[in-house]
Design a binder for these strands. Sequence first.
RNA 1: GGCGACGUACCCAAGUGGCCCAAGGGGGAGGUCUGCAAAACCUCUAUUCAGCGGUUCGAAUCCGCUCGUCGCCUCCA
Length: 468
Amino acid sequence: MTLHLLDTLSGETRPFEPLDPTNVRVYSCGPTVYGPAHVGNFRSFLFADLLVRYLRYRGFPVTWVMNITDVDDKIIRGALADGTGIAEVAERYTTRFLADAATLRMTVPDVLPRATAHIDEMAALIEALLARGHAYRTDDGSIFFRIASWPAYGRLAHLDPAEMRIGERVEADEYAKDDVRDFALWKGPRDGEPPWETAVGPGRPGWHIECSAMSMRYLGTSFDVHTGGVDLVFPHHEDEMAQSEAATGDPFVRTWLHCAHLQMGGEKMAKSTGNIARVGDVVAEGVSPRALRYALIAAHYRMGLSFGPDSLHAAASAVERLDAVWAALGGYPSDAADDAALDAVLETARRGFEDGLDDDLNVSPALAAVFDLVRELNRRIAARILSTADAGRARDVLADLDRVLALLPDEDALEPELAALVEARAAARGRREWAESDRLRAELLDRGIAVEDTRDGQRWRRTEARHG
RNA sequence: GGCGACGUACCCAAGUGGCCCAAGGGGGAGGUCUGCAAAACCUCUAUUCAGCGGUUCGAAUCCGCUCGUCGCCUCCA
């Protein structure tokens, strides 16, 4: 099988065929940096991460672009509120975003363009739209996209423009649009708002134009995949597609991918309702970053996913299970001969993993294949039928699959002080001084090192998370 | 009001016509191993897939209706 993806626009699941096999181009709608992103936002970023990782695992070179929206109403409001500039606010939360992303082991995008650094590209796009008759100016210097000029409008969201409820709260009164459904490409200058002097006049960009300008700047007028949360389908991506195609005449995106919302307490996680959890807070509560990553990627991206203490606990246990085999395989002394059946076990796991992900990135069966492998490996370790070389090969396969999952523990050496405690504990146990060895074991656990005894002596692994 | 998704064990969650008397993870019960603990392994925990009809040799999977949950139509990942 090959990778198949379900495209929002066509509604079809199709084999993935890159426009250019030597450079798969992926664009993901990134954060608007007016505050810390919450874990719901990260679900969508990590789903894109999973896609990019899997494309690379499958051998495709990928260029991944994720924008940073660093100018918009909320940032302006936030800057006003705490008396700093919008650049400061944007910088603060961009830094925070990148730190959280790193915590969650998100692949660093190849390009992280900032909107404010691409104003000229936006202006050029708007000029093209004006020239082609798809946009018009209003008295205050704003420029709008004329939906009536674009018959394809509504195709992505599968909405009929005529049936759309006209937003009562839209800025219809603030800006004099020809049609309330028309959307802003450019907002004329206003007091208290940062103005840019551009070819289309002074003002600031509308939201949608940012993504069109930045994606096409780095990926061309047509590219392979565009990702985002379902809430972006309309109006953001609908508008983006309309303005991009109206400006260039080229089909904008080959495959649109949208992930479902993260649910917490039965409803979607959203800043507007305050129903949120943040990466920093969750980690501060003692959840390991890898467990959090697991909790956010372990379900198919188009399915609603519930988030909460239960899901985090299950995720933490699952990750520990991975850690346990990983550690067991690492410290596996054996004089057994090679296990003739191991290759088949490894191959079955790899096939199950790939078959799952090939099916529109369905991680559930992929993870099932991994855990089936884990059990097979544990059985063999317990039965001592693996050779040391076998253990190494099994580890290599796990590590290879982990290029996609990114859940395995870091391979770092133990700090000297802790290493000394581990040795002391082994020595005490060797002398059958149970009280002392138990004390050292407890102390090590307290410092994040779990020590376990096996027939071949003790072994240790990091635990990361506290347990309550 | 329009559009759409979903409803599988105690919880999360695969499976979308026969390999399903239904993966995987978590939780629970019992057992093995062990100085103890932990990990691991073994057994058990859905004759059943929201409910009711229908199509079919055959349905969790297709069709219809009913009930329920969630989302989009407005800033939003």
